[in-house]
Amino acid sequence: MTARMKNKIEILDLSVRFGDAVALQGVTLNIAENEILSIIGPANSGKSTLLMAINRMIERVTNATVEGSVLLGGQDVAAIRDVQELRRRIGMVYAMPIPLPMSIRDNILFGPRLVRRLRKSASDDLVEQTLVASYLWDEVKDRLDSSAVKLSGGQQQRLCIARTLAVGPEVIMFDEPCSGLDPISTAKVEEAMKELKARHTLILVTNNTKQAARVGDRTAFLLMGKLIEVDDTNKIFTAPGDKRTEDYVTGKFG
């Protein structure tokens, strides 16, 4: 990646414990503006914990303690008084598609409606715009008021992306977004991600190394709560600097 790019997120010496169990240990990592950073690693390596620390969802876990800091655009996220604002700036798409049991339209407008009333025309625009961006518009434009639960898994996941986009985030985090999807749906989601890069910073947690290779500009490898290495995706997959990374990406464990 070019060094000219500004860092959107800077993670400095971040450690997270759940009770006595260490989940993350001294992770330092920068994420540049408008890049897709893939984070790979075996189960329980701390990938999801890292995401939760960035948007402070970790505060909803009682016994979690966080040390170190996360900067968003140079500002410490812990210092942002309104955690809701932070979460609107950093969107999140979960592993399983979780449509709320309401219409497609209401799902998308759920986030914006938390902060303001929307006029019909404005909300129609927002719905169209986000669905187009998540590559779902053509499939659902005639049934925006039908239940989101009736969509297929892949469509639901793209709806979740649209829903996240609707709150206007600067950063979008994907937590294994394709783990429950078939290859065709996965391709559509990946395509959407590449498009989103133009206006957002993306973090993609995945335990599918091929997906990381396809989508990520850079890739970080986490193992047992530690950041082993982070580099251009090509480098990670062709000439990793660490033996453990090589073992993982070549499928020796994981």
Partner: peptide, 15 residues
């Protein structure tokens, strides 16, 4: 009510 719903709402900025 599924735990997920709460996470989704919170991640979209709900108090």
């Amino acid at each position: 009510v599924p735990r997920n719903y709460r996470d989704v709402a919170a991640s979209l900025g709900a108090t």
